[in-house]
Design a protein around this nucleic acid. Structure first.
Lengths: 210, 210
DNA sequence: CCTTGGCAGTAACAATGGTTACAGAGGCAC
DNA sequence: GTGCCTCTGTAACCATTGTTACTGCCAAGG
């Protein structure tokens, strides 16, 4: 845990802070598909992601889903921070996109470290900034892009995050993430295949050149 | 300025902090329609809103606009904070929706106060939390609602923020805020009028019962 | 008074995305 | 093998939203 932590956060946190994290944090390793946070959960800890990727989803009352963004190594969940501090319920669902390692920090430390460590303050504010910008670009894509562009963006981002040009998803799963329907996604994927940009298979697809 | 500040923030900030704000902050009064922030601006100050409302807009490369949310008294602009700290450009445009009074605080103080005052930390984190949630509900409305629902929501929110059941906008202006077209908005407004929910006039409309 | 420019109403049409329905293909269990 | 279930391909159709075009209306300013 200490090596992992130092490797990922050693350059941005001072040693004293690293030591504190090691003392109070709990190391956690989760498999792909593991649900870390459900909508409505109260959160007792803040995750620091060491490796892997977490996908953050939004859902409305009717159960319609939408992928918001991915967390990657070095990220933390601003939503969680905000919820911890205000003692509010989670507005989002978090699911491990790949196997992931993370350290959970008890929320009581948040307040203390924010006063004590400049590097922690910077980290927290930076995280907020990044998350706000991620949300904005998600919003952009929904507001300003058509489904075909969103689909291409989705595939690119997924390939980047999983470091794999094979997308291991059914059309139905992609449709859920984009809040669309299976038939629409199949239609658009077929077009992409005809353009030679991807190659379709059962249960997965290959990215050729997007 | 001191009375205004104390009235709005007296209960959440300790006296010492209030005094610091008074010393370094500059009071600003802006008329309706005044542009406070343009996309791409570098920000040198953080606004504390005393009265009035500010609308926050997003725009894509093609110049298509979208209303994100309103800031009201007691609010501050998290985007601004995030930008200040990271020395980044503004991702949004801010325009006074009504006449507004605000206090601009130099960003150098941000970091200092965050270390020094618990009430300031709480305020800042609270603001982030609120803004994230506002962004999420904006995202919900775009992703999950149809235009007629969005329009009703827009009218309600606008009436609430301006404290006025008369909406002083042309159909074109509403269309810009919702990132739609004039004809579509006219069509939907007409339906709302037929349902007896609003009454249309030239350059404005009355809300009867939404 | 008349002109002009911006605003609103409306119709016809196009494009996008969502829905329903059904057929065929792949693969697993028996 | 057969049966079954899931995934994909495809067609036909519908609903919503966006576009274009044209009309009349109102109000300001000459």
């Amino acid at each position: 845990m200490i090596q992992d932590l130092k490797e990922q956060y050693g350059t941005i946190f001072e040693n004293e802070l690293i030591n504190e994290i090691v003392q109070v944090g709990t190391f956690k390793e989760v498999p792909e598909g593991f649900k870390l946070i459900e909508i409505g959960d109260y959160l007792r800890g803040m995750p620091l992601l060491i490796s892997g990727a977490i996908k953050i989803l939004r859902e409305d009352e009717d159960g319609d889903e939408l992928l918001l963004y991915y967390l990657e190594k070095g990220d933390t969940c601003s939503m969680t921070m905000a919820c911890c501090i205000n003692d509010a319920k989670s507005e989002i669902r978090a699911i491990a996109e790949t196997n992931a390692k993370l350290i959970m920090v008890p929320i009581q430390k948040m307040e203390e470290w924010t006063a004590k460590y400049k590097s922690w303050r910077n980290f927290v504010f930076n995280s907020y900034h990044e998350r706000l910008n991620e949300l904005l670009s998600t919003l952009d894509s929904i507001a300003f892009q058509k489904m075909d562009e969103r689909l291409v963006g989705y595939l690119k981002e997924k390939a980047r995050v999983t470091k794999d040009d094979i997308i291991h998803n059914t059309h139905q799963e992609i449709a859920y993430d984009l809040h669309s329907s299976r038939v629409v996604i199949s239609r658009l994927l077929k077009k992409l295949e005809e353009m030679g940009k991807i190659k379709l298979h059962r249960n997965y697809l290959e990215i050729i050149q997007l």
